[in-house]
Simulated scan of single mutants.
Amino acid sequence: MDRTIVLQLTPTHEQATLLQQTLQEHTACFHTVAEEGFTSQCSNGVELHKRTYYDLRREYPNLPSQLVCAARVKATEAVKSALDRRKKGLKASTPHSRVCPIRYDARSYWVKWESLTCSLATVEGRVQLAFTVPKHAQKYIGGKVCSADLCSRKGKYTLHVVVSLPDPLVTPSQEVVGVDLGLNHPAVTSNRHFLGERRWKEQERRIFRLRRKLQAKGTKSAKRHLRKLSGKLFRQRKDHDHVLSKRIVQHTTPGSTIVLENLTHIRSRTRMRKGEGQRRLHSWSFAQFHAFLSYKAQEKGIDVVKVDPRHTSQTCSRCGHQARNNRRSQSLFLCRVCGFSLNADLNASRNIREKHLASLGTSLASGPLSDDLSSHASA
Rank of each mutant, 00 (worst) to 15 (best):
G361W: 09
L67A: 12
M1D: 01
R205Y: 03
T171V: 15
A106M: 00
W110E: 12
G196F: 09
S81V: 05
S190F: 10
Q24T: 15
T52Q: 07
A358H: 12
P168R: 04
S147L: 03
Q8M: 06
R192A: 11
Y140T: 05
H136S: 14
K201P: 01
A323K: 10
E35N: 12
L9M: 06
D303H: 10
R211K: 15
K238S: 15
H321Y: 11
G196S: 12
T264V: 13
P254E: 08
Y54M: 10
T252V: 15
T189P: 14
T32K: 15
R324Y: 04
R126M: 12
Q322D: 05
K296W: 05
L334T: 00
L293A: 03
A222C: 02
F340A: 08
F234I: 06
H282R: 14
R279L: 12
K213Y: 06
K156R: 15
L293C: 03
C146T: 10
V99C: 11
Y140C: 09
K228H: 13
Q174C: 02
Q41R: 15
P166D: 07
N62Q: 15
L226M: 13
P168K: 03
N262E: 13
Y140H: 14
G89M: 02
T312F: 01
G178W: 08
A348T: 09
K246I: 01
K91E: 14
N347Q: 08
V305R: 15
S119C: 14
A71Q: 11
T27I: 06
S349D: 03
L169G: 01
H193S: 00
V79D: 08
Q8I: 07
Q250C: 09
P172G: 02
L23K: 05
E354D: 11
Q41T: 10
R126I: 05
H321R: 01
S331H: 11
P172R: 04
C118N: 05
V162Y: 03
F340G: 01
Q288H: 10
A348Y: 08
L181I: 13
R237C: 05
C338N: 10
A377D: 07
Y157E: 00
R328K: 15
A323D: 15
E35R: 15
V188G: 10
T12F: 05
T362R: 13
R353S: 06
R336I: 00
G255W: 02
C118I: 07
D345A: 06
L159Q: 08
I141E: 14
S81Q: 11
R206D: 04
I248E: 06
L159K: 04
I266V: 14
R206F: 04
R327C: 01
A130P: 00
Q322F: 01
H240P: 00
S152P: 02
V127M: 01
I266K: 10
S285F: 05
H136N: 10
